[in-house]
Simulated scan of single mutants.
Amino acid sequence: MSRTPQQIFQSYVHAGAMSRDADALAENFTPDGVFELPLMPLDSAFPRRMVGRDEIRDVMAAYYERQAKDQRAPNLEKSGFVLHTTADPDVFIAEIDTVFDGDGDGGEDGSRGGADVTVSLVQIFRVRDGKIARLRDYFAPELMS
């Protein structure tokens, strides 16, 4: 059964950013799927490339476990995305602006400590049989710390 870019993207986002469910996230990929983070520094503890569902699942499970202390979740009402189809029916691009609510408590020095934080990124999806065969995720690498 083939899925639309919208269905593939929504399933991926729900499994990852919303649920932090590494098993569900990995199931969005083909068995030989590739998840790439080309802007990740070479010396980063987080890999620039994961190949296959098992590696994607293992790496993301460890990341979600480290991230568990951060209870912030994206504010869906403030966040948004645009999907762009391409001439290749197996490729689509997602432009994403994810907004995390601030804590409402700005710093004494006037810093934006309590302000909303917007994370903008671009993802390029290549799909096969309704699953992600290759995902290239372009974002600010410091977000993975």
Rank of each mutant, 00 (worst) to 15 (best):
A73S: 13
I56R: 03
D116S: 05
P141H: 03
R49D: 07
V34D: 10
K131F: 07
R66V: 06
V91S: 04
R134N: 15
P38E: 02
M1Q: 13
D116H: 05
D43L: 02
R72K: 10
D109I: 02
F46M: 09
E77I: 00
F139D: 04
P47H: 00
F35S: 08
V119H: 11
A140Q: 15
P89F: 06
F139L: 06
R3W: 01
V59I: 07
S11R: 09
P31C: 05
D129C: 08
M40K: 08
G33V: 12
S145N: 14
L143I: 13
Q6H: 09
G80I: 08
V122W: 05
A140E: 15
S19D: 15
S44Q: 01
K78R: 08
V117A: 04
S111G: 11
T118L: 03
D23Y: 00
A87P: 00
M144T: 10
G107T: 12
R3D: 00
D90W: 01
F9M: 03
P41V: 04
F29H: 01
Y138F: 14
G33H: 10
F46I: 09
D116Y: 04
A133H: 11
L76H: 11
D103C: 07
D70R: 06
R49Y: 01
L42A: 15
G130Q: 13
G107Q: 12
E65Y: 03
V122T: 14
L121F: 13
S44D: 06
G114M: 01
G130R: 13
T85E: 14
R128K: 15
T85W: 02
A22N: 05
M60F: 12
V34Q: 13
A115D: 15
M18G: 01
G52V: 08
L135D: 04
D21C: 04
L42W: 07
G130M: 07
D137H: 15
